[in-house]
């Protein structure tokens, strides 16, 4: 059922003698919404450009439906791209921008018209055919850029931070719309972003990248709940990351005492990163807390309060629906399922 549409094998990209991608292998499953997520300079855009045909690999292979397309020029690939700054053609009106690819294919005028109108309908821009690009707002240009790519009925749509220039409200709307389009059209979307929230909302699969390497591939739930290392944990939402020692299976020592956990398979007394999500820490009274600390700071965040607690030399971040008084002493508890143990990655933190 799940067949791989794009397969990247040991991709290496070098620029000015520096490795931008350090041997990446990645399988993209057909009809999925796949997000490449990571901070700037992590190689996510480069990965996208390899698939689009705009970046050259120093070594490695790229398969599309099992065929090696490493040396295929961009115009012969069955993928289309939505560029970061849209890259619409300023000298053409909206209709002609969308029709551009179809005209290159020399399709009959009638078919071009139907397909362009279909696309304008899809992106909610009917009636704008004759308008010039410069008269559109950023959000509208974005829609045209998506329509211009989708009208060619690509097997895979590549999107390079397409919502980066939009304001927050518009962004949220577009996220939902993009997801709807992807599901309606049943094609593969490969989406590049540095916004973890965006990645978690829209994706079927998230690929977390850093320094030209893939850190973790998984569903948004996997990535959030079971981050593979401290970097992923920290990048996906805020986390408390504490140094710990794995005493034996299911028992970890941190913050001066031992906790029961659900992880095993570590070496005895291995130094580990202990990751605890802020929303997983429960505030209890002083005498019932496994850890006791002083409230340093409380910030109201709308849905919850963000409380900073100083305990045992760490600044703990807690999200709670209840506020606490600054300076008061509180107890904190955490259940074994919410303690995530990770190998210390050699260059993390």
């Amino acid at each position: 059922m799940e067949n791989t549409i794009i397969s990247l094998r040991n991709a290496v990209v070098e620029y000015d003698g520096e490795q931008i991608l350090k041997s990446i292998s990645l399988d993209i499953i057909d009809k999925q919404f796949v997000t490449l997520l990571g901070p700037s300079g992590c190689g996510k855009t480069t990965t996208l450009r390899i698939i689009g045909g705009f970046a050259e690999m120093a070594s490695g292979e790229l398969f599309f439906n099992g065929v090696n397309i490493k040396n295929l020029p961009p115009h012969k690939r069955q993928v289309n791209t939505v560029f970061q700054k849209y890259a619409l053609f300023p000298h053409l009106n909206i209709y002609e921008n969308i029709a551009f690819g179809l005209r290159i294919q020399k399709l009959p005028e009638g078919e071009i018209k139907t397909r362009v109108e279909e696309m304008l309908e899809l992106v909610n821009m009917r009636g704008y055919e004759k308008r010039s690009i410069n008269s559109l707002s950023g959000g509208q240009q974005q829609r045209i850029a998506i329509a211009r790519a989708l009208v060619n009925r690509p097997k895979v749509l590549l999107l390079d931070e397409p919502l980066g220039a939009l304001d927050l409200k518009l962004r949220k709307d577009m996220q939902i719309e993009l997801k709807r389009m992807q599901q309606d059209l049943e094609i593969t979307f490969i989406y590049v972003t540095h916004d973890q929230e965006e990645a978690l909302t829209m994706s079927d699969t998230v690929v977390v990248m850093r320094d030209g390497m893939i850190q973790q591939i998984g569903t948004p739930q996997d990535i959030y709940n079971e981050p593979k290392n401290a970097f992923v944990a920290d990048f996906i939402g805020e986390s408390n990351i504490i140094d710990g020692i794995m005493r034996r299976d299911f028992l970890v020592e941190f913050a001066g005492r031992e906790f029961v956990c659900v992880d095993k398979g570590f070496e005895k007394d291995e130094l580990v990163d202990v990751v605890i999500r802020p929303e997983d820490i429960k505030v209890v009274s002083q005498d019932k807390g496994a850890i006791v600390g002083v409230v340093e700071n409380v910030v109201f965040k709308g849905v919850h309060y963000e409380i900073t607690v100083d305990a045992l030399g760490y600044k703990w971040i807690i999200q709670s629906t209840m506020s606490e008084e600054v300076g008061s002493i509180i107890g904190m508890n955490v259940t074994p399922e919410d303690i995530h143990i990770m190998h210390k990655s050699e260059e993390s933190r």
Binding site: G53, H75, N80, T81, F83, K85, A87, L88, F100, I104
Partner: peptide, 10 residues
Amino acid sequence: NLVEAAQDLG
């Protein structure tokens, strides 16, 4: 990106 966009579109 304009040249790339054109190539991308065939």
